[in-house]
Design a protein around this nucleic acid. Structure first.
Length: 905
RNA sequence: GCCGAGGUGGCGGAAUGGUAUACGCGGUAGUCUCAAAAACUACUGGUCGCAAGACCAUAAGGGUUCGACUCCCUUCCUCGGCACCA
């Protein structure tokens, strides 16, 4: 018997091991020479001033467990962390508390890193990244200049949300939908709220206006097809792949040209249903369409009488916000243009209308309206009394009332000359071919994906590294060819008479200046626009007076490439690791092929495992993919896809409700860590449910997890350890547990892993003596979940054993860190199960009669193969006999080692 | 409306088509204690029954199967995202 034992005291154990791990470099892989590398990445957090959020800890713990598991499996694991600190949240928080964002960032950073330390994750703290560090955003800006040089950064007019009361530009997420003129109506016996949707400012509830500003965009749409085509190859959570596919939203159809009668003008429309072309009874143009502009400018003859009405309609439509224009159930409005177009398949004259239900931003900004088969066109035709001509017959409901509503389903083509009798969608290709041969239409694809808006009219972000030069423009306008660094022409801003000059690499970063008044100003410009000392600059090209761009870039740009920065060794050199690593390897070449062959680069990238929230399924992941493709195309990295595997975790909620400050139900991990220790908190968070599904946090539940860890503590101190485990049953259960947990962690099914650890504990808890190996394996299985407790117990009770068995553990240690002296449990070899221990002498066979369980019995495994033996044994059962009495057995189904089922009459 | 994820005890949640409810929380009873807490032990889906046991339960309804939480069809509900996308 052992003497009275010390209490389990995490607040003593946890800081102690944290210090040892840090000092010993336990989690610091040698990036230059490791040969089984595993890059385990988690989405870096936005460092909120309130500190680490429970949702952060939930995500990071889940990611860390996987990293620790891989490390123990013999991989050299690189697990970095950083902060995504630029952006609107930090800026707004700074405004709220009246502290400058630059100062607040430093405070938040310190606090956040301290809390991250406590969670017990196996980070390499020698390589952190903060996006607001000028050394970091130097390269964010550099990427921008490269985008510009490749023609992928362009300026376009684009509407922004503007709050006339706050006098500031709002991000989409700052605009909330409100119902104006709310009224209730009864639908199917249920009360429903109804009304007109409007977008209002989240702070003052003023209705948000649209303001058209000249802004920078990245042409991600140029990459749409590649981004789409790579998706099937990715080892990503299926839900994310679907979300990305839908976001890119490729729709295949045809572009068809309609000539305008008595005029040289043409209207190009895009349609996914060319099979309904014979049913097109009118065309509709978006109010922004160029034909509308031509009408207003009287460039189209004989239409002058209609200009007034059209102008009035177009002006009104343009002022409407998207929300207003797209409000569901809103009655459609439009105006006749006075023009007629010719349907190219049957030469029918059809009227051309202008209506705001057609969007300028999608397709060609013009549609062919087929009211018989499109709901929106149908509504419009009804209202303005336009022709409706059915061309698809619904084969299932032949005698349906005609024209009661639009029919958009499958069917047979009719009223369409040559095509009559063809089927939709089966004969879609035939229609495409027919139209292409007659040169009426062209196959075309359209994408839902839009270009990436980079400009932010704010302060807290990296300044866009662009200079506008008047003099260079004048030179250009004199038809002199101005060459950039790359030998390409400068692009000009149309109508503005400024040449665009990217800031040369040697002048980067363009540092964000410390300015007192960083509040948004009422003009829709960045606060930097009020600081001449910032924007006045000499042109790097001609040396003349020039001005800087004063907008800053989107935070999504900061986070689109950060995973590359972690690997780079030198802040001043280019952070894209293939090049840098190749140089480190003393490769005498920058030739891409040779770099590609470098074992190091191939090994560390792309990221092996990326873990993060499903809420980033679309934007962040898509932007990162785009960025990686772009850097690949620049020849800097040799892979196109940044993340080999991506796992989306679920959302952590509190007692059935989403956590939010207004509800006052936000979980502060700090408080729980203080009370129970990080190990308990980690395990509890992971026990709540499937990591992929999220979990529901209950305060009472965490006590149970704390009890479990305490019990392990007590058991380890009380149980007698024998050199060798003799009990076959103990070994069987141990190996079953090893098998189960190993499989579960690989699937990131942590809640079931913990349940299996508990089951194993329950199984050995009443034993007086167990083998050292059994305790060791148990602690190793626990180690990824409770890194502190497992280390403490391992060092306390198994250290002596380690000294005698050098060969077993040192292989992993060498792999992870050649210089590490300390034999941490976290560098030990992950237990492997041996199938020979899983064999049982006797198994339970369940007896069913007609599929219903009636009895069970133990049976020698050596006799399992013979159905007859099992059958005889089953028939001996009194319970079963009663059911079989006087009945005829039709069939006997036997599943080896599991079940025998008598099917009776 | 569209896309996606779900619906299993009082609660969080387990179940390669093969004993539904593992594991944990909560609850009840007990041990220990002057008492309480902690810890430990036992029980804990529902109905009927003294019991043995029987029957009913995985949102609802149908189907496939010897056997369905699991596969198929229909409907309902909850959550997340997108939305006049041609």
């Amino acid at each position: 018997m052992k003497k009275s034992i010390a209490k389990y005291n995490p607040s003593e154990i946890e800081p102690k091991w944290r210090e040892v791990w840090e000092k010993e470099g336990t989690y610091k892989p040698d990036l230059e020479s490791s040969d089984k590398p595993f890059y385990n990445l988690m989405m870096f957090p936005y460092p909120s001033a309130e500190g680490l959020h429970a949702g952060n800890m939930y995500a990071f713990t889940g990611a860390d467990i996987y990293g620790r598991f891989k490390r123990m499996q013999g991989f050299s694991v690189f697990e970095p962390i950083g902060l995504d600190g630029f952006g609107i949240h930090s800026e707004n928080y700074a405004l709220k508390i009246g502290k400058h964002p630059m100062e607040q960032a430093k405070i938040s950073e310190k606090n956040f890193y301290r809390l991250l330390h406590e969670t017990g994750n196996s980070y390499d703290w020698s390589r952190t990244v903060e996006t607001y560090d000028p050394k970091y955003y130097k390269w964010t800006q550099w990427i921008f200049t490269q985008m510009f040089k490749k023609g992928l950064a362009v300026r376009k007019k684009s509407p922004v949300n503007f709050c006339p009361s706050c006098k500031t530009v709002l991000a989409d997420e700052q605009v909330i939908t409100k119902i104006k003129n709310q009224r209730s109506k009864i639908k199917d016996g249920k009360e429903e709220l109804d009304g007109e949707k409007v977008g209002v400012c989240e702070r003052c509830e003023t209705i948000v206006e649209k303001k058209n500003l000249e802004q920078w965009f990245f042409k991600i749409t140029d990459y749409a097809e590649r981004l789409l085509n790579n998706i099937p190859e990715l080892n990503w959570s299926e839900i994310v792949k679907i979300a990305q596919t839908n976001w890119i939203g490729k729709s295949e159809g045809m572009s068809i040209e309609f000539k305008i009668q008595n005029s040289k003008f043409k209207i190009e429309v895009f349609t996914t249903r060319p099979d309904t072309l014979f049913g097109a009874t009118f065309l509709v143009l978006a109010p922004e369409h160029e034909i509308v502009a031509s009408l207003l400018e009287s460039r189209i003859k004989n239409q002058e009488s209609r200009i007034g009405e059209i102008r009035e309609y177009a002006e009104k439509a343009k002022k409407k916000s998207d929300l207003e224009r797209q409000a569901e159930g809103k009655e459609k409005t439009g105006v006749f243009s006075g023009l007629y177009a010719v349907n190219p398949v049957n030469n029918e004259q059809i009227p051309v209308w202008i209506a705001d239900y057609v969007l300028a931003s999608y397709g060609t900004g013009a549609i062919m309206a087929v009211p018989a088969h499109d709901l929106r066109d149908f509504e419009f035709a009804k209202k303005y009394n336009l022709g409706i001509k059915p061309v698809i017959r619904d084969l299932e409901e032949k005698n349906k009332n005609e024209l009661a509503e639009a029919y958009s389903g499958d069917g047979e083509i009719m009223n369409s000359q040559d095509w009559n009798g063809w089927k939709y969608p089966q004969d879609k290709e035939k229609v495409f071919k027919w139209l292409e041969e007659k040169k009426i239409g062209q196959k075309k694809a359209h994408y839902h994906l839009r270009d990436w808006l980079i400009s932010r009219q704010r302060y807290w972000g990296p300044p866009i590294p662009i200079i506008y030069c008047r003099k260079c423009w004048e030179v250009k306008s004199e038809k002199l060819k101005v060459k950039s660094e790359q030998g390409k022409d400068y692009k000009l801003i149309d109508n503005e008479e400024w040449a665009i000059v990217p800031v040369p690499e040697k002048d980067l970063p363009v540092e964000l200046p410390y300015i007192e008044n960083y509040k948004p100003i009422g003009t829709g410009k960045s606060p930097l626009a009020t600081h001449p000392e910032f924007y006045n600059v000499k042109c790097p090209n001609c040396g003349g007076d020039a001005v800087r761009e004063t907008d800053v870039s989107d935070t999504f740009l900061d986070s689109a490439w950060y995973f590359l920065r972690y690997l780079a060794t030198d802040w001043d050199d280019m952070p894209f690791p293939s090049v840098k690593f190749a140089q480190n390897l003393k490769l005498k070449t920058k030739n891409l092929k040779e770099i590609e062959n470098s074992a190091l680069r191939v090994a560390w990238l792309p990221v092996h495992m990326y873990i993060g929230g499903a809420e980033h399924s679309v934007l962040h992941l898509l932007y990162s993919r785009f960025m990686t493709m772009f850097l690949h195309d620049l020849g800097l990295i040799s892979f196109e896809e940044p993340f080999s595997r991506f796992f989306a975790h679920g959302l952590l909620i509190k007692e059935g409700a989403k956590m939010s400050k207004s509800k006052g139900n936000v979980i502060i991990p700090d408080a729980y860590i203080k009370k129970f220790g990080a190990d308990t908190m980690r395990c509890y968070l992971m026990f709540l449910g499937q990591f992929s599904q999220g979990g529901d946090f209950y305060d009472t539940g965490i006590e149970g997890m704390n009890r479990f860890l305490k019990r392990i503590w007590v058991l380890a101190q009380n149980v007698n350890l024998s050199e060798k485990e003799e009990d076959k049953e103990v070994l069987r259960v141990l190996h079953k547990t090893i098998k189960g947990i190993t499989g579960d962690i690989e699937k990131l099914s942590y809640n079931t892993s913990l349940a299996k650890l508990m089951e194993f504990y329950n199984f050995i808890s009443d034993k007086k003596t167990i083998g050292k190996d059994v305790l060791e394996d148990f602690l190793k299985l626990l180690a990824p979940f409770a890194p502190y407790l497992s280390e403490e117990l391992f060092q306390l009770f198994l250290k002596s054993k380690i000294k005698n068995q050098k060969s077993k553990m040192n292989t992993n240690k060498q792999l992870n860190n050649k210089t590490a002296k300390f034999n941490s449990i976290h560098l030990q070899k992950w237990p492997e199960f041996d199938p020979k221990f899983l064999v049982q002498d006797k198994v339970t066979i369940v007896v069913q009669v007609n599929g219903r369980v009636r009895d069970n019995f133990k049976f020698q495994t050596s006799n399992l193969k013979l159905k007859k033996n099992v059958e005889e044994e089953a028939k001996k059962s009194e319970k079963v006999k009663a059911y079989l009495e006087g009945k005829k057995i039709i069939k006997i189904i036997y599943v080896e080692g599991k079940i025998i089922n008598f099917v009776i009459s």
